[in-house]
Design a protein around this nucleic acid. Structure first.
Lengths: 213, 213
DNA sequence: TATAACAATGAACTAATATTCACTTTTACT
DNA sequence: AGTAAAAGTGAATATTAGTTCATTGTTATA
């Protein structure tokens, strides 16, 4: 007998894998999924092309993992920040606020995660990513209904609708081509989104619109 | 002198081009944009590989044209069918009805036009396609506001939001994997979408939800 | 019918990358 | 040290289409 994997070697393997993932994430942030090649990844990570395949069985496998990591570390609603209030309306507003705040912080990345053309295997991750948002919204809506704050509605459909609204609205600031949307424009956009959603979901919708009339 | 293009030859060229486009559209309906290759297209159309390039300067150029044609011939709101009523609420309902009716009639095609990964050049067409829907909704919303039927709101944002709602809601029936969603489920989905949108956009939203309470 | 211009063809060419693999280096254990 | 097992390497391989182009076929005029 001779060689056996030990804690040290396993730690080393994990570190190598981490180098790859972290280099890949950087590349995706810079240029999106489409322009990531194994050669570029090898260069950036400092490992050899062949080594990539010691850690991932294919490029798609790697991209899947990269998508998951990027999504969960950068664009995921934090329920702690939502549950600061137990009023479902405020929870919904907080969730949207959080969404835009995260999404606009790294617009290249948001574009990649939400809109960029990706291989089918990764598309599955995108669906899970969106479904995750929908789950949060669905919970808030159910709570709001039980609090008599929200109208009787199908929570799943409304949750999906909110995801659709966000997905489509986010395109507006992201298309502010290579410039940043002015802060006051952003604030207006977020407020309008919140109002639109609240009108669709809650009793009285957004109250302020009644005073205006 | 010798050869000059005439009506006959021009008609022939047009016919050849039509063969290509129509074969391409069939392929996209069957397998989506991603699986269309020039060789398959040549086989299906009966022309030679090289001939494709007499009519389109590149594959992307062809796909762009195919996308445009498929979109405008299969998934475009017909304003005549919307303007049967001059009540903006009814117009909005009619538009959504029309959207789902068209989109569910050919689900593979809808999937390709709305969701499938496509080259950037074609993505531009998709944006125009969506913007076209948004334009229609925006008009309806403006009219509804001037009729005092709709709340004061930013028409462009609301229109985009509606597009997002439709885009995301359509995924539900399309994911009814290779089976058709039962008719009653479809009807419910469409109604719920309409109600959601009306609540967000109009005074009183969907009146029926008030009686329920 | 000769011919100039164009259309049609499809085998060959290209290009871009994912993946492999023979070889080297490192590790862990006797 | 000796060695078995695994990790690391990167040039070579494989694959997959998109695109080209030399050749052949067709059309319209003189």
């Amino acid at each position: 007998m001779a060689y056996r994997p030990t804690d040290k070697t396993r730690a080393h393997m994990a570190a190598q894998r981490h180098k790859l993932l972290s280099a890949a994430e950087q590349l995706v942030r810079e240029q999106g999924f489409g322009k990531l090649t194994i050669t570029k990844l090898a260069n950036k990570s400092g490992l050899a092309v062949g080594s990539v395949y010691k850690h991932f069985k294919s490029k798609d496998d790697l991209l899947e993992q990269v998508y998951k990591d990027l999504a969960s570390n950068n664009l995921t609603l934090d329920s702690k920040q939502i549950l600061v209030s137990d009023n479902a309306k405020e929870q919904l507003s907080a969730a949207l606020e959080q969404f835009f705040s995260q999404a606009l912080m790294a617009d290249k990345l948001s574009y990649a995660l939400f809109y960029e053309a990706i291989p089918p295997a990764v598309e599955t991750q995108r669906q899970a990513f969106k479904a995750n948002y929908a789950r949060t919204f669905s919970q808030i809506i159910k709570q709001g209904m039980s609090q008599q704050l929200f109208l009787t509605q199908e929570p799943e459909l409304s949750a999906n609708a909110v995801v659709g609204i966000l997905t489509e609205s986010l395109l507006i600031p992201l298309n502010w081509q290579h410039q940043q949307m002015p802060t006051f424009e952003r604030i207006k956009l977020i407020q309008q989104c919140q109002q639109f959603c609240l009108r669709a979901i809650s009793y009285n919708g957004d109250e302020t619109s009644f005073f205006e009339h």
